[in-house]
Write a protein that binds this DNA or RNA. Sequence first.
DNA 1: CAACCTATGTCAGAATACTGACATGAGTCA
DNA 2: TGACTCATGTCAGTATTCTGACATAGGTTG
Lengths: 155, 155
Amino acid sequence: MSQRGIDLTTSLGYLLKEASSALRTAMEEALRPLGMTITHYSCLELLAQRPGLSNSELARGAFVTRQSMNVLLQALERDGFVTRPEEARVGKVLPTQLTPRGRRSLEKATVAVRAVEDRMLAGLTQEEQSNALIVLRSMVHALRDDNQDVNPADH
Amino acid sequence: MSQRGIDLTTSLGYLLKEASSALRTAMEEALRPLGMTITHYSCLELLAQRPGLSNSELARGAFVTRQSMNVLLQALERDGFVTRPEEARVGKVLPTQLTPRGRRSLEKATVAVRAVEDRMLAGLTQEEQSNALIVLRSMVHALRDDNQDVNPADH
DNA sequence: CAACCTATGTCAGAATACTGACATGAGTCA
DNA sequence: TGACTCATGTCAGTATTCTGACATAGGTTG
């Protein structure tokens, strides 16, 4: 009669959280010697690949609120890792750029993070990895707010 | 010469974080009407499946520190969702039990969480799901602290 | 037995992220 | 043009989690 619980040992949701937690811990340990946090690193990595990203765009890319990213950006700007124009050229958007110092800092972090990711992927075939990519993308898509109960309409 | 960045669009680590973030947001929205947080729910679910778990064991199962779980347990005990003995029968371990009220509260939450998980799994075949389980377990294992560079020695 | 190590529960302070709120700029629509 | 909606940057306060620290219980090892 009463609803049975969710079996944690076979729940994809639980295992997803476990894997994410393990990755987070490993990355924190790898970045700690560099005095860098995960959000800190994510911000620099995003800026390296897509220079000129705004505060809100960086927030979405790093999976935090724009308020959290804002305080981080102010610290990064104060310490000379990034630069932002005084005023917006259009709207209120302030495009952010990496400084040479920010780029150097990111390079060390990338080495450390890549080592963690390589360790995580060890023991998985190329096919398993690409299958995992597909499955994770499907989960992300299915969980979107704007995807409550509509039929699968491909872009 | 210089280390190239990590391509976020094809990085399993980044996608893992994205999926985990999406799941977290969806679960928060589902649990908010019940006045329950994710850690809160995780604690009750763990106790339902393995009654008598200690504070530290619950912390590991919910992927938080034992300090965080401790403050949560004190609140849950104060509000009558769980009970703990005054003194430890052996060592310092205080086995925790769900109260009837805690069990009722959990049942509503399980329904909400199951709906989220079903939505996440929609569009995935049974085979894709079990393959994803295997891949995630492999990642978790590879990231363990006590698994730095030893040869694959099974259990 | 004594020294050591590990695990646990707990308190206190620090760090981090979040919610709420406000003003402003851009696009839409009647 | 004016009203409306939406997104952005930012400030302030709150909440949650973490790190540091301590005392204690149990097992291990010499």
